[in-house]
Simulated scan of single mutants.
Amino acid sequence: MVLLLAAATGLIVANLYYAQTLVGPISRATGLTPGAAGLIVTLTQIGYCLGMIFIVPLGDLMENRRLIVSCLAGTSAALLVAASTSNAALFLASALCIGLGSVAAQVLVPFAAHLAPPHERGQTVGKVVAGLLLGIMLARPVSSLVTDALNWHAIFVLSAISTALLAVVLHRKLPQRQPASAIAYPALLGSLWHLLKSTPILRRRAAYQACMFGAFSLFWTTAPLVLATPTFHLSQSGIAVFALAGVAGAIASPFAGRRADHGKSRSTTGMALAAALLAFGAPLLLQGGRVFDLGLLVAASIVLDAGVSASLVTGQRAIFALGEDVRSRLNGLYMAVFFCGGALGSSLGGWMYAHHGWHGVLLTGLMFPLAALGVYATEFTGKKVPALP
């Protein structure tokens, strides 16, 4: 079951990222300007954030399998619309809906936490999140390779078909889970603000991951653009190979989960934030020839993805320990906050690259882990927000 959940979350969340390395071809085909190209990724992430607030909390109210299958059906339909259009407004509207439906992945992650015994919860969540992150990371090279072989419309057609098939498989294989809560939907939504206000660990972990995911989205929105310039002159296949290297970062997820199970959340978080700082600082400070610079970017992508993976698993393990009856709502709030950071990062990345080039992108990327380290420093001052052991 854990393997099925890991594979399913990876396939679902990949829908958010197929367009990330295709920003150039999609923006040219739909007539978007370079400054507005970041909207292709940003609107998907905004849809995901909205889904986190309005759909994921239903995991504490509705039968989970039915909720997941319904979301996947909507996602498949939105992918078909995206595949069949070259109109900018219609494509962006479809991107928003793809994000909304893909929150099914974040109903599955708490599902895994429900199935796991408490002493193995971090490892189980780590395995499922590793699948999720593999989906994120593999989406980029797969979309580039399919686009090189066919066109950018093809990846959306294939994804629509695979998402529909996944809905059928999950309907047959997932056990039913009906939450015990009888709270009405308006009251459910109304409880979100109270949970955010009264759960300091949630606020802290969401702040860390918002910064980390902002850095992640900024990097992966702009890296394909700079790799296609005459400086590196990579084709879509070359960009796919570059993106494939980032998959290595997913190995950090189970490792981080085990450390969190052993009470080492604080040090794991520190290492994750330091990794993101290094990923932007090294390319900014070190320059060489084309081969050196490309190798450094590959290393930076692996280090950044590992840091984001470790921070995500550590955060989810922390909030899943807070209460079974509110687990979906806590996860929805956590993901919504940090995906807002991702939306900010992707939109800033496109704008900074258009106006200040790659150097400006790297400087902006540094600001995200530096902000997270500012919050992290308060763990050692004893002020306001308690830290996890």
Score class of each variant (00 low, 15 high):
5 L>T: 01
19 A>M: 14
19 A>D: 09
19 A>K: 14
22 L>F: 07
30 T>P: 01
34 P>D: 02
38 G>T: 08
44 T>R: 03
45 Q>P: 14
49 C>M: 14
49 C>N: 04
50 L>D: 10
52 M>Q: 12
63 E>G: 08
65 R>A: 11
71 C>P: 09
74 G>F: 12
76 S>R: 13
82 A>D: 06
93 A>F: 04
97 C>I: 11
100 L>P: 13
102 S>L: 14
106 Q>F: 08
117 P>R: 00
121 R>K: 12
124 T>Q: 06
125 V>G: 13
126 G>M: 07
127 K>D: 10
133 L>K: 15
142 V>K: 13
152 W>E: 10
164 A>P: 04
165 L>G: 04
167 A>N: 10
180 A>K: 06
186 P>Y: 05
196 L>S: 12
199 T>A: 10
209 Q>K: 09
211 C>N: 13
213 F>M: 02
214 G>P: 03
216 F>N: 11
219 F>R: 07
220 W>D: 04
225 L>T: 02
229 T>R: 10
261 D>T: 03
263 G>I: 14
263 G>Q: 09
265 S>F: 01
266 R>W: 05
267 S>A: 13
275 A>D: 01
285 L>Q: 11
288 G>K: 05
307 G>T: 08
313 V>I: 15
317 R>A: 06
346 S>R: 08
348 L>Q: 05
349 G>E: 01
353 Y>R: 10
375 V>C: 07
376 Y>C: 13
385 V>L: 12
386 P>W: 15
386 P>C: 12
386 P>N: 10
